[in-house]
Design a binder for these strands. Structure first.
Lengths: 114, 114
DNA sequence: ACAAGTACTGACTTAATTGTAAGCACCTAC
DNA sequence: GTAGGTGCTTACAATTAAGTCAGTACTTGT
């Protein structure tokens, strides 16, 4: 993994949401637990491979927990931990910043509409 | 550049601080304008090449402005724009989250001490 | 000439991340 | 057999980001 420098707190937070998908995944879990397939459908463009990898990393990092149910078809749910929920408050602030400054920011990669 | 998906606001914010160095650079500018060389010294591990690239990108994106003074030796200062200052509030929240959860988070890349 | 200061830039390499296209396992229904 | 549902995993390829090591320009000082 990329080593993040900087202020000790900021480095940790940046590592937590590093990469293209983690912040989005974390936000998709903010209101309730979600299953793998539903996550995949709600996040356009993400591959099963990358989704699986990111979920594993976030579970390892303590941001989310993975609940396996003894059912057929298999049912696995992902939910935020307290730490993940707390970080989601900041992710929400980021999104609000983005909405407020969408017209101020030039040459910025556009997000998919949602 | 990596294309960010997701909620339109979140995608824009993620693009704004994407990569290893942007959030840190933005934070280093939070209290006053700083010159290139000082930024380099205050951010351990960053190369001049990458610092220069990131500053250019952030200027293009409207997060910071670059002030050139007619002096010798050359004096160039970088300062946050209102949008950048606003985003720094969220960067600060991220850092606080990191400080609060440093002991909760496992297997997380450690940041350089500061 | 050398050294120091300032702020970069370019060629090339390395590292990290993401993407593509399969495949696996289990069950149920037709 | 086929199809559908569930949740992944693997081999390989492609893309992106960062790093290394030069180099540029200007001035001043020894």
């Amino acid at each position: 993994m990329r080593q993040y420098p900087a202020a000790c707190g900021l480095g940790i937070a940046l590592a937590a949401i590093s990469g293209k998908w983690k912040a989005t995944i974390l936000w998709e879990l903010h209101s309730r637990p979600v299953r793998f397939g539903e996550l995949r459908r709600r996040i356009p463009g993400i591959s099963e491979k990358v989704l699986s990898e990111q979920l594993r990393a976030m579970e390892t990092d303590g941001l989310i927990r993975r609940d396996v149910y003894d059912e057929v078809p298999p049912r696995v749910e992902y939910a935020v931990t307290p730490a993940g929920a707390s970080l989601n408050a900041t992710v929400h602030a980021l999104a609000e910043w983005g909405l407020e400054h969408v017209s101020d920011i030039r040459a910025m990669a556009t997000a998919g509409g949602r």
